[in-house]
Amino acid sequence: MITSIFNKSKPINFTIVFFITFLAFIVLNIKRIEESITATFLLKQAFLFFVCYVSILGLSFIVGKNSLTKKSNYEIVLYSLFLLAIPQTVGNPDIIYANFFVLLGYRRIISLRSQISVNKKLFDAAFWFGIAALFYFWAILFFLLIVISLLLYTDNNIKHWLIPFTGLLAVFLISVCLSIIWYDSFFEIFDSLPEVSYNFSNYNSIQYLIIITMLFSFGVWASIFYIKNIKQKKKVLRPSYYVVLFAVLIGFLIIVFAPNKNGSEFLFLFAPLAIIIANYIEIIQERWFKELFLSIIIIAPFVILLL
């Protein structure tokens, strides 16, 4: 019943995802509202919601364009449910913007499989990751995906290895120019300095313990089958699947390094993890188990909200 709704790309699925994401914003603002409700506040929240929803549409485009799933909508449903399970992920504007630009970088890296306009795609990916790092420093770790992609494609063209660094350099130079114009200082705009914290005490709550356990257990289980299934994919598609896998690991590293562990840092993990779990759902043969698996993921966020 449930799987029949999302196993194909349908307009109603995007409507469902829209309302789940909207509910995540409502839950966050009910629990953590700290400022009076004004027109400015509502406009700010509306814009953040718009960026989040466009990010979901972007994820759907990346997955569909590069055949990362079997033309289902599981990945966007999972993504929106993750937002609802940890509504704090929609509470940090900087991370929301950084994640948006990271997704733009994903799109360019994964599209390398076509081997068309490689130079432009490498530059664009590095440029978007650089922009993301301006909002949240540790997003710069996704630059590693470019290096990994070049290794996966066994690219020995030295120019392709240098181009990504010109993308970062372009972001740096543009940022310095803007800093001079706005602040009359060369480096004032770089206010996101590299900080690290290994204090995980904020996760010591029922909400975090349940959702972290669910994400970790489901993620590891799905990843095992995901890795096995990569070998059955066409050779030209395999690097894209490995990039998604490494993106999950980078998202996990960001959670470990995050200086302020308030839950918002999990956002970087959601997109690649949603793709991996979506792939697992698609290969489940037993109908009853597929329904049960997806039902647990759907019900869990609503149960957590009641705790």
Results as ranks from 00 to 15, higher is better:
K65M: 10
V244T: 12
A126C: 08
L307G: 00
Q45W: 08
F252C: 07
L141Y: 11
F165C: 06
F82S: 14
A258E: 13
S80A: 15
K228T: 08
L78Y: 04
N204D: 13
L273F: 02
H160E: 04
F82Y: 15
D124L: 02
L145G: 10
I109G: 00
G105T: 07
Q232L: 14
K121G: 09
P11Y: 07
S264D: 05
F49L: 15
K231L: 14
L215M: 15
F41S: 07
E265R: 10
S223C: 10
L84T: 12
L305S: 01
I110V: 14
F246G: 07
V236H: 11
F129T: 11
F216N: 00
I277R: 02
Y226A: 11
F289L: 15
P272M: 11
M214V: 15
P164H: 05
S197D: 03
F257N: 13
L83E: 10
T15N: 05
Y74Q: 03
L78E: 06
F289G: 06
A139V: 05
F246I: 15
L83N: 01
Q285S: 13
F137L: 02
V118Y: 01
P194A: 11
V54A: 12
L249N: 07
F61N: 11
S223G: 05
L292G: 14
P87H: 12
R113I: 03
F129G: 05
I298A: 08
I109C: 08
I12E: 04
F6R: 04
S80Q: 06
P301C: 11
F22H: 00
A271V: 07
S295R: 03
L83G: 09
V118H: 02
G105R: 03
T40V: 13
I30R: 00
I109Y: 05
N199C: 02
I296G: 04
N13R: 06
R32M: 02
F266H: 06
F142H: 03
R287C: 01
I37E: 03
W221L: 14
S217P: 01
I181K: 12
V102C: 01
V303A: 12
T69W: 05
V102P: 08
K235T: 15
T166V: 14
P194Q: 13
P87A: 12
F50N: 06
I62D: 11
S55R: 01
L150P: 05
S67T: 12
I174H: 02
I163T: 01
F82T: 00
L144E: 06
L59Y: 05
L273D: 06
E188Y: 07
Y226C: 10
A170G: 00
K70N: 15
I16W: 07
L209T: 14
I109Q: 07
Y226F: 15
A247E: 02
L306A: 12
S60P: 02
L178R: 00
L141V: 05
I95H: 00
I158A: 13
I277N: 05
Y208E: 04
